[in-house]
Design a protein around this nucleic acid. Structure first.
Length: 656
DNA sequence: GAGTTTGAAACT
DNA sequence: CAGTTTCAAACTC
């Protein structure tokens, strides 16, 4: 039998430890995924050498993770397969144990003494009976699943679990509390974790997240089906603890376990069933995590613009449907995420929303447009031609691109390409549209109707479209043209640039605007940065500032949310933001959002934090409101939040 | 769905 | 920096 030796485990153990401190969300997801892989057996051997830092980095290498991910996917033994019905109870146990052990073990500050004991016991038993092989391929894994010895191991493990449940209640509760804290108030995340969270969105995280999404369609469905009617509590945990999904696996796991453990009324069989469900639920959680991460990058309209006109702002933020790996939970997740404080917002239709079809119906989203996806054929999605790439997002299955390299598995290529592009144009990946409250009264004397004087970063160069079609980036972004534009015959309904005038203002309003409303910003692929005061004011007072953009972001759709790619960090304080020169400053501002120095409160937060409204008080409170008037604010806000947390510079592996 | 138009991005 | 080419989205039919 293939049993990893402890030396191999060691790194993992120390790794987990490290991860908890520095890369909670993502790393954990990564690890967990690992565990689901056939080769996860090695985890079982996680010995006590948690002190061994050596090799930790190696184990943490995103590339490694991705590689594993790829392997898993390729050999058909993805987490999906394991977490699904294919495995019996024992399998689930075998899988869960490592996961639990690892995290528990690695968690330095987690009061899991009981589990340490368990770990030791488990480690000894499992490792002792099994061989010392370092590798465990699928076949071996399967064989192992069938072996009597393995069953015996599992039985032993099972014997451990019961006591663990009770013994672990304490730490579970602790962790769960933490998770709750994380969930209850997004702002706490910043306050309490500061630098840590900043690292959450390292490339590895997002990349990995992206990677794990695709193969989970089945499990997704499974989970959906199961949670849809059988585990209301589970769903609640997901809905009520959106952040938890991003939190370390231990948190998620704990929560799940908590559900089981806390349910004293359950019989053993019920608990076992719960246990199985837990593993499946974890799969769901991973997906959730993915989605949370996905929209993290920048305020691209890809993410913002697609808010529904209707009541359903929640759904608007819904990540685009994942192709084959479709994750029906995406909507739910996003909803949860977008309005963590308002479960009621979704609670009412929770069950219904779990159904993709019903959710879509609920969302009232045009399927065909709800998911914007690229269709690159020759750029390999590694050029700005690609909307996904340009938006700092990974392509996902819904994309129809060919020879796409903009995927997590090609992370290095993507990052390198991005680096090169940024070297040429530091603002290449910066949001294209800047919105500033201060800019309301256009000092340039432009006849602009765009609320809050949103402006395209570079301006357009339209010649024939009269800036009335989506060919025009200004129009597409729902902003008026400015002096930065070199357009000819500008008739931008959002505001024409200098020197351009409408022969008939009424015509403008009635026709151009109407046309705009029908076509423009719905699927805007442009990125938007809300700067300075408006960032908050506009958000909190959606109906006022956006009056001029009746349709600006009322688009029904949301571009898909391929996973964002970390953007290079830039530094800029909001103080540097001068309303008169937002264009030049924007990048810096953006960087504040995207790249928060580790262990340091982002300046943007220090200076503008107030509003940061990081403390959404009401579900309906419109925090960030891109132009659309609907309630997507909370969602948008969430996006902002994610940005702050998830666009860190390269993670620092230096211990705190 | 195929073909055309358009303008940004990339290239020279 | 300007001109040209490439590219993919937007648009039209």
């Amino acid at each position: 039998m293939d049993t990893p030796d402890k030396t191999q485990i060691t790194p993992s153990s120390s790794l987990s430890k490290f991860e908890i401190g520095c890369h909670r969300e993502s790393r954990f997801s990564v690890k967990r995924h690992h565990f689901l892989a056939p080769s996860n057996s090695r985890v079982l051997q996680s010995g006590n050498d948690s002190n061994t830092d050596e090799g930790a980095s190696e184990a943490v290498q995103p590339s490694d993770v991705y590689d594993d991910q790829v392997k898993c996917d390729n050999n058909g033994s993805s987490s999906r397969g394991i977490s699904s019905d294919l495995l019996d109870e024992q399998s689930n146990l075998a899988i869960e144990l490592p996961r639990t052990l690892k995290y528990d073990f690695g968690s330095p500050d987690c009061s899991m003494v009981p589990r340490d004991e368990i770990l030791k016991n488990t480690s000894v038993e499992v490792a002792g009976e099994e061989g010392s092989s370092l590798q465990c391929n699928k076949d071996q894994w399967e064989e192992r699943q069938q072996s009597f010895e393995n069953e015996r191991d599992l039985r032993k493990i099972r014997r451990i679990f019961p006591s663990e449940e009770s013994a672990g209640c304490e730490w579970v509760a602790v962790v769960s509390d933490v998770a709750d804290l994380l969930t209850l108030n997004s702002s706490i995340i910043y306050d309490s974790t500061e630098g840590q969270d900043q690292r959450n969105a390292d490339p590895g995280t997002t990349s990995f997240a992206s990677a794990i999404l695709q193969p989970q369609d089945d499990s997704s469905n499974l989970g959906n089906a199961e949670t849809g009617d059988s585990s209301g509590s589970c769903k609640q945990s997901e809905l009520a603890d959106p952040i938890t999904d991003q939190t370390p696996a231990i948190l998620s796991t704990c929560l799940v376990d908590k559900l089981v453990v806390s349910d004293s009324g359950l019989k053993k069989d019920d608990k076992e069933e719960k246990c199985k469900q837990s593993s499946r639920q974890r799969s769901i959680r991973r997906r959730c995590l993915v989605f949370e991460k996905a929209p993290g990058f920048g305020l691209h309209l890809n993410s913002l613009a697609n808010t529904s006109k209707g009541q359903n702002h929640l759904s608007k933020v819904t990540p685009s449907p994942m192709k084959s790996g479709e994750v029906p939970h995406d909507n739910k997740v996003m909803v949860t995420e977008s309005s963590p404080q308002t479960p009621a917002a979704v609670g009412g239709n929770e069950a219904d929303q779990n159904s993709p079809e019903k959710k879509r119906h609920f969302e009232n989203i045009d399927e065909s447009t709800a998911c914007k996806r690229c269709n690159c054929k020759r750029s390999k999605c590694l050029k700005l031609y690609c909307d996904c790439f340009a938006a700092g997002l990974y392509c996902i299955e819904p994309c129809s691109c060919q020879d796409c390299f903009n995927k997590p598995i090609h992370e290095n290529v993507v990052l390198e390409t991005r680096r090169q592009i940024e070297s040429r144009n530091p603002l290449a990946f910066a949001p294209k549209v800047i919105r500033s409250m201060d800019d309301v009264s256009d000092s340039r004397g432009e006849t602009n109707k765009t609320p809050a004087s949103a402006r395209h970063k570079r301006g357009c160069n339209c010649k024939k479209s009269s800036c009335l079609k989506k060919y025009c980036e200004c129009f597409q972004g729902g902003v008026g043209c400015s002096s930065n534009c070199r357009c000819e015959g500008c008739k931008n309904s959002f505001g024409r640039k200098d020197g351009e005038s409408f022969s008939d203002e009424s015509e403008f309003d009635a026709e151009a605007l109407e046309t705009s409303e029908m076509k423009a910003p719905e699927n805007s692929a442009l990125a938007v940065v809300v700067s300075k005061g408006e960032e908050y004011q506009d958000l909190s007072a959606p109906s006022t500032n956006t009056s001029r953009l009746p349709f600006a972001y009322s688009g029904k759709l949301l571009k898909s949310f391929p996973h964002f790619v970390r953007s290079s960090p830039q530094v800029c304080t909001t103080q540097e933001l001068d309303s008169s020169d937002l264009s030049s400053c924007r990048p810096k501002f953006e960087s504040d959002l995207q790249a928060i120095p580790e262990n340091e409160t982002p300046k943007v937060l220090k200076h503008n934090c107030p509003p940061l409204a990081l403390k959404p008080t009401s579900p309906n409170c419109k925090r960030v409101s891109p132009p659309h008037h609907d309630c997507s604010s909370s969602t948008t806000w969430h996006t902002r939040k994610l940005i702050l947390r998830s666009v860190p510079s390269f993670p620092s592996f230096s211990p705190p």
